[in-house]
Design a binder for these strands. Structure first.
Length: 455
DNA sequence: AACCTCACG
DNA sequence: ACGTACGTGAGGTTC
């Protein structure tokens, strides 16, 4: 039985455990204990035969308490900040909506992708051969509308209105509702058993997807503030996934590049670093990400908005510079075929039954997972080790600083001002030394009066 | 409940 | 000819 069946779906009307008849609580609690014991009896043996005992007992189990402490500690959110931007943005959103109706000549629900598609492609006919989604509906994603921006003034307004609506509904208006009246803070859940790679996820609310890429959205981070007499401290791994790929592949050139601390994105070209233009670097950066995901010529061409021929040249050049990376990718797929799974540096497995599929699309997914999962998952292993050690040191050294958030390659802390130097040293040291690789691991850090300033 | 869209690493 | 970069969570619409 699910908890929501017992106390109702999350929201205002959700009951607390004490409002549920004791017979029902008893039934629920007993089932919890019974099922857990049954699972333990079976999984304990499996842990041993799969050689995953270290991962379980040395990482996942100790991490459980670290996560619980983070959840209980919670995060301060300055509501006055959010309320004032809510008023301003709500007004702008409504103005844009009126202008959209004017330009369309009809009123409609701008939140409805279907209605937006019908207005743009049937009423205004701004594109003869509009792209459709799998279900035959017009696709109106940001990516598509961006390319149609110049066709009609309504397009830009729809994009702007959507952007503002997203910020309001998902963050600005939602976060204040989630403040726990007892603690005055927001308490997320860090889910330890959701992802297929070993990453955490965050829910109710998700605090791992607070905006940062766009200037307007990132202002929301100003609302995430430390306690009184404390500062916000943020530390993040620099290019951890690329460094792991250098380590796992053993590629001499990439290892050397990281050891000498050079600009890895610029380094893929066979010209002096000074000769690398901003555009070359941007393309190389996208290519580097692509490699980690199991690149395709098509995928890279799409993202960079370049012809496939050019994307192919870029990829070929890349593998010429880093031949062992190419070998590593082939080897990962080969391992998946032979063993049916791939694993991370700590022995976390990703089962890949589709690696033998006769459907090339399905098989393609499995092959890309074979490349990506060990990299993404090893990064998760490493930051988990760092979190456990940092939590232990904060406790042993009687510091009042608290770890409050993890965002995949980043850790955030609430730090009493007088502790900042010690905590900075502890956090960076434990992050950088969590798991020695063939290349150095680097952690950047910053402090501020809020999450935005600390970044 | 499925779908679309979009926020993050 | 087709479909194609990895991993998530949430809000809104539609059925």
């Amino acid at each position: 039985m699910s908890i929501e069946k017992l106390i109702g779906p999350k929201g205002k009307k959700q009951l607390s455990m004490r409002q549920v008849p004791v017979e029902q609580v008893c039934e629920y609690a007993a089932e919890d204990a019974d099922v857990t014991l049954q699972l333990k009896n079976r999984l304990e043996k499996e842990l041993k035969t799969e050689k995953m005992e270290k991962l379980f007992y040395d990482i996942e189990m100790p991490l459980t308490k670290v996560l619980a402490d983070m959840e209980i500690t919670g995060v301060n959110v300055d509501i006055t900040e959010l309320k004032s931007s809510s008023d301003i943005l709500t007004r702008r959103m409504n103005e844009l909506e009126q202008e959209i109706f004017q330009l369309a000549g009809v009123t409609f629900n701008v939140s409805s992708a279907r209605q937006v598609g019908e207005v743009l492609f049937e009423r205004l006919k701004i594109d003869e051969k509009a792209k459709k989604t799998k279900t035959g509906q017009y696709s109106t994603t940001e990516e598509i509308l961006e390319k149609l921006r110049s066709r009609h003034p309504i397009v830009g307004k729809i994009l702007d209105q959507r952007g503002i609506r997203k910020l309001l509904s998902t963050y600005i208006n939602a976060l204040p509702e989630l403040i726990n009246p007892k603690t005055g803070k927001i308490h997320t859940s860090f889910n330890q058993t959701i992802t297929s790679t070993g990453r955490l996820s965050s829910s109710n609310p998700n605090l791992q997807n607070i905006p940062i890429r766009d200037n307007e959205g990132r202002e929301i981070r100003r609302a995430f503030v430390p306690d009184k007499d404390c500062i916000f401290f943020s530390a993040d791994y620099s290019q951890i996934e690329l460094r792991i790929m250098a380590h796992l592949s053993g590629d001499r050139h990439m290892i050397e590049a990281f050891r000498e601390g050079s600009d890895i994105h610029a380094k893929i070209y066979k010209v002096p670093i000074d000769a690398v233009t901003a555009d070359m670097r941007r393309k190389a950066k996208t290519a580097n990400f692509g490699i980690i995901y199991g690149i395709s010529v098509f995928g890279l061409a799409e993202r960079l908005n370049i012809p496939r021929s050019e994307a192919k040249i870029l990829i070929d050049g890349y593998f010429e510079s880093y031949p062992q990376i190419k070998e590593y990718m082939n080897k990962s797929i080969e391992v998946a075929r032979e063993k049916g799974y791939v694993e991370t540096i700590c022995g976390r497995k990703r089962m890949l039954p589709d690696i033998h599929s006769h459907n090339s699309v399905v098989r393609g997914y499995a092959e890309r997972n074979a490349i990506n999962a060990p990299i993404q998952g090893s990064a998760a292993d490493i930051i988990k080790i760092a979190m456990i050690r940092i939590a232990k040191r904060l406790e042993n050294e009687h510091l009042r600083s608290r770890m409050i958030l993890q965002v995949h390659d980043e850790l955030n802390f609430n730090v009493p001002v007088e502790e900042i130097e010690r905590v900075k040293a502890i956090v960076c040291e434990e992050m950088e030394n969590a798991y020695p690789l063939q290349v150095p691991l680097l952690a950047d850090s910053g402090v501020g009066r809020n999450w935005l300033e600390a970044h």
